[in-house]
Simulated assay, not measured.
Amino acid sequence: MRSFDRGPGHLLRPWGLRPAALWGHAAERLLLTDAELDPGRNAPALTAYTWTGTTEVGSAPGALREPAETARRGEGEDVPRVLVALSSTDFPGMLRVYRRIVDALSGLPLEATVTTGGVDLGGELEGGPNVEVRGWADHGELLPHVDLMIGHGGHSSTMKALAHGVPLLVVPVNPTADQRLVGRTVQRAGLGRCLPRTAGPERIRGAVREILVDDELRARAAACGSRLRSLPPGAETAAGRILAVTEDGGLPG
């Protein structure tokens, strides 16, 4: 809040829209995320804020998987499944990041689905024998069946993966957004790893290997998913707080 108010936020001040002032006068200040994971949960400036919990909904890993859908290789041995989902905004250089990730995954014994969100990457993204590239896919349908998600650190996609109990490898693609903060938070919580967008295929491949064989990390991610799914839905909590404000006359007419 402070950095935005001192930076881009000053452009709004001539119209009386200074963010800090608006937040300070709000009848409710809702944070639609998980308080336990939020690194700002103990910040004195946020004492009047309410953590509603995430609005993302998850299901237990594998809960929707049919036996015929299980990816297999060789003598019927299960292989890990990986979902790659970077931003649905075409940030500069994303094609190079995608290509490095595909290169890294192509050299591993796993099955991967890469989703581009229909973004124009400025060039063609080719998959591999074990890497399928899709323009768009419903991540809520895919996440119950995967063992790892490689994402960009967007808050929504990150919380969706965690709500499903899926560990993360975060590769932030926008240095000015909150993606690096989200990635560092995931790594500090022991729920995955965070690599810079410049990481090469070998480094990405090594991080994927480490996460997939780290039973303790995977157990923490599963426990995080169970906890998030046990909490009241964040959207309902937020809606209830908003309705309470309007019913109490807390908003100007």
Rank of each mutant, 00 (worst) to 15 (best):
G127H: 08
G7T: 15
E132A: 13
E247R: 14
V213T: 09
P167F: 10
R73C: 09
L17F: 15
R72C: 00
I204K: 14
R241Y: 14
G200F: 01
T47R: 13
V213R: 06
L181I: 08
A161Q: 10
L46Y: 14
I150T: 05
L195V: 10
G62H: 05
T198P: 01
E36M: 02
S87W: 07
P14W: 10
L86T: 09
P80L: 10
S226N: 07
A27S: 15
A48Q: 03
H152P: 09
A71E: 10
P196N: 08
G123A: 15
R241T: 12
E36S: 05
H145K: 13
T33M: 09
G127E: 04
D103M: 00
G7R: 14
G183H: 04
L95G: 09
I204W: 11
S59W: 06
S230W: 09
G135N: 05
A27P: 05
L46I: 13
T116S: 08
L32F: 05
G93C: 07
G135M: 07
L217A: 07
R2G: 12
R209Q: 10
V186L: 01
G122N: 08
L121C: 09
P109Q: 12
A21K: 00
A20W: 10
A26L: 05
G127W: 07
T54Q: 09
V182K: 03
G128H: 07
R220P: 06
G16H: 10
E111I: 00
M159T: 11
G151C: 10
R209A: 07
A221S: 15
H139T: 09
V131K: 08
N130H: 12
L12H: 14
T52S: 10
G118Y: 12
Q179P: 06
G117R: 05
R193K: 05
D38C: 14
A60G: 04
R65M: 08
K160L: 10
A163S: 15
L142S: 03
R184T: 00
R99S: 03
A238T: 01
E77F: 00
C194I: 04
W15S: 05
H25C: 00
A239Y: 02
R100W: 06
E77V: 13
W15Y: 07
I211G: 08
A85K: 03
A199D: 15
G122T: 08
L46H: 13
R81K: 12
P92D: 10
E124M: 09
G123K: 13
E77Y: 01
L217T: 04
A207L: 00
S156V: 03
A43E: 12
V82S: 04
L195S: 06
D147F: 00
A207W: 01
H152F: 05
A163I: 03
G165Q: 04
T33C: 11
A48P: 00
R73T: 15
W51L: 01
